[in-house]
Amino acid sequence: MDITLARTFLAIAQARSFQRAAQQLHVTQTSVSARVRTLEEQLGKPLFVRNKSGAALTAAGEQFMPHARTLVQVWERARQQVSVPAGRRAVLALGCEISLWHPLLPRWLMWMRERAPELALRSAVGAPRDLLDQVANGVLDVAIAYAPQQRPGLRVELLIEEKLVMVSTNPQLRSPLAENYVNVDWGPEFEAQHGLAFPALSNAPLQVGLGPLGLEYVLTAGGTGYFRQDVVRSHLEAGRLHRVPDTPEFLYPAYAVYAAGAESPALGAALAGLRETAAGTWQATGSPADMGKKPRARASKN
């Protein structure tokens, strides 16, 4: 079977619309319809029922769904393994949500360099929905995301329950003011809880959709905002930022998402590295010049 047909089927099933699937695949709706007709002819069953709200799977479509995922995943893994760089045993691809990449992703890359040097690594940063699509399609082996949606065929594992804490460049601040507040978009759950706790701050003059950008602004121009505790820890210790007392903390968990039933030494190493670095029980053994030496684990002083 042409893998393109399986990809098109999955795109329609996810978008529940031929038109939206065509937009995601960057092809015309006519091409999408033609691919579906070809696939249905090969299988001998209709896969979709079109209605006013879009497209719904038939019983045959539901039965074909896990097979389509498997086809795409196996193809992508085969394609990646064939392109393994010289001197490496396999390729491991990991994606991370934009708001979560620092400091977890750099730490994980260093862990993999020390503990799994036989693996070639491919890392990417992106939007959560795109990352989950890539895991489902076999493009990524694992993705790190905040509050990922449950999807059939994917396994979700909690890595760390980090906190969002209110910090300020003003050590004397006791009550945040809207004119100096940076309202960071940490997702709908945070927005709902934050709106209940600070209704006057929800319409602050400065709204930022990216945590690192908001933090850089606060450190440069001064101000107040909610940021990930692990990220601001060094700034708190250095006195550049200060916790605003008596303000609520909000959970901001990070999850690892990977294909259910996927078993490989490469994925096992990747998950082991994520668990250890997320738990803070590992530190790099030394400088890049030391990377050829035998690695050893050390307990964190935090």
Rank of each mutant, 00 (worst) to 15 (best):
P176N: 15
E161D: 15
R7A: 07
F227W: 00
V82H: 13
R243Q: 13
V231N: 02
K45Y: 00
R37E: 08
A68I: 07
M65A: 07
S202T: 15
P212C: 04
R240E: 12
V36H: 01
P199M: 09
A6P: 03
L47I: 08
E191S: 15
E162R: 11
P212I: 08
A178H: 07
Y217V: 01
A278H: 07
F48H: 02
A127D: 15
R69M: 09
C96L: 02
E41H: 09
V82K: 11
V156G: 00
E118F: 04
N137E: 15
G280E: 05
Q81G: 05
S83E: 12
T220W: 04
G61N: 10
T224K: 07
S264N: 14
R37P: 03
T8Y: 00
L10R: 11
P152L: 11
R79L: 08
K163V: 02
A93N: 01
R155H: 12
E179M: 15
Y181V: 08
M110L: 15
A116F: 05
S33H: 05
N51E: 10
L92S: 07
M291E: 10
A120H: 13
E41V: 00
R113G: 14
Q172D: 13
F18H: 06
A284C: 12
G239Q: 12
W75F: 10
Q73Y: 02
V167E: 13
L43C: 05
A221C: 08
A270W: 02
N51C: 04
P248F: 08
E40D: 06
R113A: 13
A278I: 07
F190G: 07
H102Y: 14
E276T: 06
N137F: 03
N170G: 13
E237N: 06
G223F: 04
V232C: 08
Q172R: 14
E118D: 11
R174Q: 14
A59M: 05
A90R: 08
S202I: 10
T277R: 01
E189M: 03
L159G: 05
T285W: 10
L43H: 10
L177A: 11
P212F: 01
I160P: 01
E161G: 10
V139I: 07
G138R: 07
M112K: 00
A11K: 09
